[in-house]
């Protein structure tokens, strides 16, 4: 049972890492490609505000094929990768009924999220 859970945990971790690397690099290269092809002015754009506002901006701009939206998306994917690893670890510990490490994992997630939500200017 424990070996099966460990195996599953390894598989999910690898899947998260490979997916996020592929997605991030894909988005950034698409953004750079659009910039080079269409001469979009992505450099002056610097996102700020809450993460929710930045995500809403990315969605709106991506529909219009703006280079900055793809660059933002690639940057956000990399930012959320450690968080995704933490969440998958907490889920694995819930399945293993390891409540001590569930609470420690949740504590670290809370700290990372606090960082995300305290920087809004």
């Amino acid at each position: 049972m424990k070996a099966a859970l460990d195996q599953q945990r390894r598989f999910i971790t690898l899947w998260i890492l490979r997916l996020s690397i592929g997605l991030s690099v894909g988005c950034i290269l698409a953004g750079l490609g659009i910039f080079l092809a269409m001469g979009a002015d992505y450099l002056p754009h610097t996102p700020s505000g809450s993460i929710v506002q930045i995500l809403a901006y990315v969605w709106q701009e991506a529909v219009s094929l703006h280079a900055s939206a793809f660059l933002d998306a690639g940057v956000l994917v990399i930012l959320f990768t450690p968080l995704a690893r933490l969440v998958s670890g907490v889920v694995a510990n819930v399945r293993a009924r390891d409540w001590l490490y569930v609470s420690i994992g949740l504590g670290v997630i809370a700290l990372v999220l606090t960082g995300l939500f305290t920087g809004q200017s």
Partner: peptide, 9 residues
Amino acid sequence: LSHGDVSPG
């Protein structure tokens, strides 16, 4: 990022 210090470019 939220503070506006990270240019995606």
